[in-house]
Design a binder for these strands. Structure first.
Lengths: 147, 147
DNA sequence: GCGTATAGGTCAACTATATTGACATATTAC
DNA sequence: GTAATATGTCAATATAGTTGACCTATACGC
């Protein structure tokens, strides 16, 4: 009686652990590489979001990243200085600036998330297409449940 | 030509986002509940690990949690004071202490990860057993690849 | 019994990450 | 010309977590 409930709970606990350790395994690699370059996770997030939303303004980037202007400022400035990100005044509204990855920035970003894609692709390859399909379905349902 | 590669990359990017948003969706709930109780994520982690490794010593807990003794001290002390965790001297070695969840602590822990289990169970239920199986396979492969 | 190792407790200083407040400049809109 | 918008920057603060230093109590080897 109790056993059924306990067993089901143990299965779900196992799934929770898989999620935690899987997430950690995927995120730990880039963290180390970034650290080696003297950057931190914010820098990666900035590269990631600019890569996926090119031509964003600063305000636009702030919104998708959900951090404060003051916090974004330093790392973004550094990325611009190091020529990973280009910042150009918008000709139609000279108050705002448009952000893009430079070729150098795109290479770095690709190499960082590239490691993550490699890990995922390897797991998908070994598990097979049906397992991948199931994984995507379940993850989409989890992610879709709003907080 | 390029298209094949780009398409594959986009699929993997999508998977990466699923992982990130899924993880966030699962972890955001308990964070809010904890905050309402005046606790933080460490408190939850302590409850979680003691729940899964009952009768650990302080050192044992430090090892599984991978935090410093000094950092563990305050939140653990508070949890003991608030009667969520019991701390008893080991009779066989009176230097060390054995940690356990009290009934109250077990209830809190169950209610916190219970919300997470509920979310997972709901996703599994909607996706079906085959998708669940695939999800577990893929997650295990991801988690298993050591950093 | 004595010295040493182990388990734990506690204070203080420090780093990293991130936020809020306050204020400045440049540009655009009305 | 005035108000609103976009950005830049300084300073103070909050939170999470670390390291160093030093303390007590107990166990273990001899």
């Amino acid at each position: 009686m109790v056993d059924l409930k306990t067993q089901e709970e143990a299965r779900l606990n196992k799934a929770l652990e898989l999620l935690h350790f899987g997430f950690r395994a995927i995120t730990s690699h880039p963290d180390e590489r970034l650290a080696a370059l003297g950057y931190s996770r914010v820098h990666h997030r900035i590269l990631y979001f600019i890569g996926r939303h090119p031509d964003s303004s600063i305000n636009g980037l702030l919104e998708v990243m959900r951090v404060s202007k003051q916090y974004l400022h330093r790392p973004l400035k550094r990325l611009v200085n190091d020529a990973y990100v280009s910042m150009r005044t918008d000709p139609r509204d000279r108050r705002s600036k448009r952000l893009k990855l430079t070729a150098k920035g795109a290479r770095l970003e690709a190499s960082l998330t590239g490691e993550q894609r490699r890990q995922l692709a390897e797991a998908f390859r070994r598990a097979g297409p049906e397992a991948e399909q199931g994984w995507r379905q379940v993850m989409a349902l989890i992610a879709g449940e709003q907080s």
